[in-house]
Simulated scan of single mutants.
Amino acid sequence: MSDDPQTLTCWLCERPLGDIVQWHHPVPKSKKGKVKVPIHPICHKTIHANFTNNELARIGEDAEKIREHPAIAKFVAWIANKPADFDAPTR
């Protein structure tokens, strides 16, 4: 995988990435996670607003399991047609 934002897609929402790219550990570093995946800042905030590090460690690196969560599924559907660098407050 290239680190060029023009060729990357977001691990969570699968939209193309914009100018601002964050790197998310699907399994948190505090739980011995080593893998990093590219993600939009708003998607990153949404994951951490809905899951604890312990929950993320149990789920592992499977983005599909994260997307199955009702709040995340609603978020992914909502953000699907937004521009790559779209941002908004998260709860």
Rank of each mutant, 00 (worst) to 15 (best):
I39M: 15
R58T: 10
L8K: 04
P70T: 04
H69S: 03
L56Q: 15
A57G: 10
Q22H: 10
A77C: 08
E14L: 08
R91G: 10
H48K: 07
A49I: 05
P70W: 10
D87A: 03
G33H: 14
Q22S: 07
P83G: 12
W11C: 01
R15I: 00
V76K: 01
V37C: 07
P83E: 03
K65P: 08
N54M: 06
D19V: 06
P5A: 13
F51P: 06
P28E: 04
G33T: 09
R15S: 05
V27H: 09
V21K: 02
T9S: 10
E55Q: 15
D62L: 04
H40C: 04
A73Y: 11
I72Y: 07
L17Q: 13
K65Y: 02
I79D: 06
A88P: 14
A63G: 05
Q22F: 04
I66H: 10
R15N: 14
P5W: 02
P70G: 02
N81E: 14
A84F: 00
P83F: 11
E64Y: 05
H48V: 07
L17I: 14
P89C: 03
H25N: 08
A73G: 09
P83S: 09
A57W: 04
K32I: 05
R91K: 13
I39D: 03
W78R: 09
H69C: 01
K45S: 07
K65A: 10
C43N: 12
L56H: 14
D85Q: 15
W78E: 15
T90F: 13
A57P: 03
I42N: 08
K34Q: 06
H69L: 01
K65W: 03
K29D: 12
K32R: 10
A63M: 04
T9G: 04
G60P: 11
D85E: 15
K82M: 09
H44W: 02
G18Q: 07
D19A: 11
F86G: 01
K82G: 00
H69F: 02
Q22V: 06
D19M: 07
W11R: 02
G18D: 13
M1C: 07
V35L: 08
C10E: 05
F86H: 13
V35A: 09
V27T: 09
T7D: 08
